[in-house]
Computed example of a mutant assay.
Amino acid sequence: MSRTARPAFIDEAPFAQLLANGHCTAGGETFDPHPVIKLFTPDANATWLLTELDPDDEDRAFGLCDLGFSSPELGYVRLSDLENLRGPFGLAVERDEHFSADRPLSVYAEQARLSGRIIC
């Protein structure tokens, strides 16, 4: 099992929830959780709504990823990549402290597909 240090932009409680959700998915259950955390680049148009962490590789997160090219998609991202990512003005990825998911990830994904971007 790959263990990584928890990134600074994810507090302990959301990290634990992401990992718990990952265990549900790993168990083979049909699972459509609400996003746990929203991350974004303050100086670019990238946004991530993350729902879970891979229990065998805690650096691998799953969610809705929008890099600002009008084609958001469900997929995996490495937290270490997000931690090292900088926008055009050198700003790091941040957590949206005011985000609270009010629907499952599948609904956010469908809305993003229709609009070409994540709508929160």
Rank of each mutant, 00 (worst) to 15 (best):
E94W: 05
A13S: 09
F89W: 06
E83D: 15
R95Q: 14
A46P: 01
F40A: 04
E58F: 02
R117N: 04
G27T: 01
L85N: 11
E12V: 10
G75E: 11
D54I: 02
D54A: 09
P42F: 02
P88Y: 07
R117H: 13
D57H: 14
P88T: 09
L79Q: 07
D11M: 03
T41K: 11
L82M: 14
P88V: 12
G22A: 02
C24A: 12
E29Y: 10
F15P: 04
G75S: 10
N84T: 12
M1S: 10
F69K: 11
R113E: 12
F15D: 05
I118R: 03
L91A: 12
A112F: 03
G87K: 04
E58N: 10
R113Y: 08
P104Y: 05
A109G: 03
E52C: 11
P33Q: 05
S106N: 03
E97N: 06
L19N: 03
D66G: 07
F31P: 01
A16G: 05
L53N: 05
P14K: 07
Y76T: 12
I37P: 05
S2K: 13
S80R: 11
P104F: 06
A26K: 13
R95L: 01
L67Y: 14
C120Q: 07
C24L: 13
L82I: 08
F69R: 11
A92R: 15
T4Y: 02
R3H: 08
A8D: 15
T25C: 01
D96C: 07
E83L: 13
L79G: 08
E110M: 05
L91V: 01
Q17N: 05
L50G: 09
R86Y: 04
L64T: 07
G63Q: 06
D66L: 08
A109D: 04
E29P: 00
T25P: 00
L67V: 10
